[in-house]
């Protein structure tokens, strides 16, 4: 594997995760539990679409095959998508959305903090901009972890169930392969083992503070690095891509 291939692959992982979780959040539009949350969720979705656009544009440039960010978003199939399994999980109830977002926000908070120091200038620049947004996202989801965890009996139970159900997808966050090995060596990407330590510590602190229990399950699903997804992604992509797929070579 060349450095260029590794970089392209790595950028897809970052960009696809943003795109897919942004898509999921945008599904809430107009259906949120309160108007203020509608605004917050759309705002966060917009940050993710912006981040995905920058990263996929850079991925296309790195690839050098004259594809654009839209080609990458709209013309790749399920097996070519590299987003984390966690990001494609359906919205469920509000507790599920908050739990999913919280687990992901803690991850990106520590990951992008390291990416700010990347030896690749473009990645470092994108990470610097995004990390400011992520800090805000994390504050928002953390507050909701507390509200729902330590709110009513119902909200507590719903959030606990959501955490338990989503926990199996958290192993995927830290899965590493030769792409990571190569980029770590070049100082472009961080070692996910270190991110994992920080993530586990922080997640545990918030879960306990929110009067919740750490999920007991040890089952871990992985596969996003090789484009092995859950059944949910196919539907999401079919919906997202339908116009450009139906009318190839057309400008919108």
């Amino acid at each position: 594997m060349t450095l260029q291939q590794a970089k392209f692959e790595y950028l897809l992982r970052l960009g696809d995760s943003s795109l897919i979780i942004g898509h999921r959040l945008s599904e809430w539009c107009g259906h949120g539990p309160i108007l203020e949350e509608d605004i917050a969720l759309i705002n966060i979705a917009l940050d993710f679409v912006g981040n995905a656009t920058s990263i996929l544009a850079y991925a296309a440039q790195v690839e050098g095959k004259e594809r654009t960010e839209d080609d990458l978003a709209y013309m790749r199939n399920e097996r070519d998508y590299r987003n984390l399994l966690l990001t494609e999980q359906p919205n469920g109830d509000y507790a599920t959305t908050i739990a999913r977002q919280f687990l992901y926000d803690v991850y990106t908070f520590f990951l992008y903090e390291e990416l700010k120091k990347s030896k690749d200038d473009t990645i470092a620049a994108i990470a610097t901009k995004s990390h400011k947004e992520i800090t805000y996202h994390l504050r928002h989801t953390t507050e909701w972890m507390y509200r729902l965890g330590d709110g009513t009996e119902e909200s507590h139970q719903r959030l606990q169930n959501a955490l338990n159900d989503l926990w199996m997808f958290t192993g995927d966050l830290f899965d590493m392969d030769e792409v990571d090995a190569l980029l770590i060596k070049e100082g472009i990407a961080p070692d996910l083992e270190k991110i994992k330590e920080a993530w586990e510590k922080h997640v545990k602190e918030v879960i306990i503070e929110a009067t919740l229990q750490m999920p007991a399950t040890t089952i871990k699903q992985t596969g996003s690095r090789e484009g092995r997804h859950t059944e949910h992604l196919g539907y999401l992509i079919a919906e997202m891509q339908y116009i450009p797929r139906s009318y190839p070579n057309t400008k919108w």
Binding site: S26, I39, A52
Partner: peptide, 25 residues
């Protein structure tokens, strides 16, 4: 909102999200 998940390009998606966020605001 019915078209946000099906907006035909990333640029259109971002614009539509921003617009609907404005409406909520």
């Amino acid at each position: 909102g019915n078209w946000i998940t099906r907006a035909p390009s990333l640029r259109r998606k971002a614009i539509l999200l921003a617009k609907v966020q404005d409406e909520a605001g």
